[in-house]
């Protein structure tokens, strides 16, 4: 009884405190949308990357024209200043260099707060690779799921190249288990400025991704122009690509 009284007393005190402080403290921030935009650049010069444009890979010395470049990003989380995490439910995206798709990851209803870090998985978690028929961007009809060897194609890069013996290149990179598992979780810190989520206030995270990095430790297209299964090649190409993705700036 005594204890209950004490609790009640404190509860009243806190409530009173909260309401009285309202004018002094900043207003409670409202939930809002956070956008992560992937800007695709080409090679170390970070020149413009786009589909259907002939590019030269400086390391390979080969020309290539992409007509498909897309990949999965999933399990996005945001770390608040107080150290707590907001985890987006059902967090699966296809980031697509084709303007018909989207290079943006949009996270709705993020609790109003100040955020210091973003965490995301490149690829699709093993749970969703083994849980049967999925919907949305994980729908196998999206052409990003292997029919004969269950699992998601985590990066799809296709195009043409005069240096390839077939004239084309086709890289479907994935594999969710064992030594050749490609999906990886990475965290990026925003530095000095926090990302403020407050209702309609703009909250954008800009990332830089560089498709040239797929071939950072891979064979020339003249040697290897296709790889469409989970293996060490898929592992190497995806890791060099994912590892080079970096946080650039926030718009707030």
């Amino acid at each position: 009884m005594n204890r209950l009284n004490k609790i009640l007393f404190f509860a009243i005190l806190i409530t009173a405190g909260l309401s009285s402080c309202k004018d002094d403290e900043p207003e409670t921030k409202k939930a809002g949308e956070v956008t992560i935009e992937f800007d695709h650049v080409w090679a170390s010069t970070e020149s413009e990357f786009s589909l259907n444009k002939e590019l030269t890979h400086p390391l390979l010395g080969e020309k290539m024209t992409f007509n498909i470049f897309k990949y999965y990003v999933s399990n996005v989380r945001l770390k608040a200043k107080d150290g707590s995490w907001y985890t987006m439910p059902e967090s699966y995206f296809i980031v697509d260099a084709d303007p018909a798709g989207s290079n943006k990851v949009v996270i709705p209803d993020v609790p109003g707060n100040e955020y210091t870090d973003v965490e995301m998985m490149f690829g699709v978690d093993s749970t969703r690779c083994t849980s049967g028929a999925q919907t949305g961007v994980l729908d196998p009809a999206k052409g990003m799921f292997w029919s004969w060897n269950s699992g998601y194609i985590m990066i799809k890069a296709e195009g043409t190249s005069p240096n390839s013996t077939s004239g084309n290149f086709t890289f479907h990179l994935g594999g969710f288990k064992g030594t050749n598992k490609v999906q990886v979780t990475k965290t990026y810190n925003f530095g000095a400025t926090a990302l403020v989520v407050d209702g309609d206030r703009e909250a954008e995270i800009h990332m830089i991704a560089n498709p040239a990095r797929l071939w950072h430790s891979a064979d020339k297209l003249a040697v290897k122009n296709t790889n469409t299964m989970p293996n060490t090649i898929a592992k190497t190409m995806s890791s060099t690509y994912y590892d080079a993705i970096r946080f650039d700036h926030i718009h707030n």
Partner: peptide
């Protein structure tokens, strides 16, 4: 043994 779930099994013959 390449397919790990009954739900995605028909995808193979349908798309092959």
């Amino acid at each position: 043994g390449g397919i790990n779930h009954i739900e995605v099994m028909p995808l193979a013959p349908i798309t092959n």
